[in-house]
Design a protein around this nucleic acid. Structure first.
Length: 200
DNA sequence: CGTTCGATGCACT
DNA sequence: GTGCATCGAACGT
């Protein structure tokens, strides 16, 4: 079952928690890939210094101010695409960053895409549980790019499904990779899952 | 083990 | 011109 818009039009921390165990699906011309979400982070409002909306509306963060249930995709460090699910009512900028998946479908395609990264040429293939470990890696494995910015997650090629997968034990801790806003424990992970990013 | 650092593009000031 | 919601290799203990 595809998650409806009402799933996203709620307090962001609720959406964050409930996204664990849900399945991100992308149907590309090359084939379908899918993975269960095991790591997410919440970015909530202009008062959150780590949120892209912290400095008010701009061209880049416009999707955060729009309706819920859409993708906010942006390029980070000039190299890595990142995908968020926009939450809350329009006008309330907030989103959930999807940081890691447990690969479920299309593993061969994921492996091929990861191998195409310039820094992976001539290297051994990526182990299955690392294919979607980290936000940049998962977007590369799934084929998600800036072209998917603002795409609805409730219909079409890029969707999030409830397949009845139990999230397991959820751990809340500090968001990682940011320089401000680390006080909030707005990172939710499936405890002990091998595909969660961070130190091994 | 640990920490440092380069690659790379673009929105923002 | 600056600074990233990263990744992975290279170096130092």
């Amino acid at each position: 079952m595809i998650l409806p818009v009402d799933f996203y039009r709620r307090p962001t921390l609720e959406v964050t928690r409930e996204l664990l165990g849900k399945v991100l699906v992308y149907k590309a011309t090359q084939g379908m890939t899918a993975g269960a979400i095991v790591e997410v982070e919440a970015y909530i409002g202009e008062d959150d210094p780590a949120c892209h909306a912290a400095a008010g509306p701009t061209q880049r963060n416009a999707p955060l101010y729009g309706p819920p249930g859409r993708a906010y995709v942006y390029l980070n460090y000039g190299l890595h695409d990142m995908i968020n699910a926009v939450t809350e009512e329009a006008g309330h900028p907030a989103a959930v960053l999807i940081r890691a998946l447990e690969p479920l479908d299309g593993l061969a395609l994921m492996r091929a895409r990861r191998s195409q990264a310039p820094w992976r040429k001539g290297k051994p293939p990526v182990p299955d549980h690392e294919l979607c470990r980290g936000p940049g890696n998962l977007c590369r494995a799934m084929g998600i790019t800036l072209a998917d910015n603002l795409r609805p997650l409730t219909r079409g090629a890029l969707t999030i499904h409830d397949r009845g997968i139990a999230a397991g034990q959820i751990v809340w801790d500090s968001r990682i990779g940011i320089r401000v806003g680390t006080e909030q424990h707005w990172r939710a992970t499936v405890k002990g899952h091998r595909s969660v990013s961070g130190k091994k």
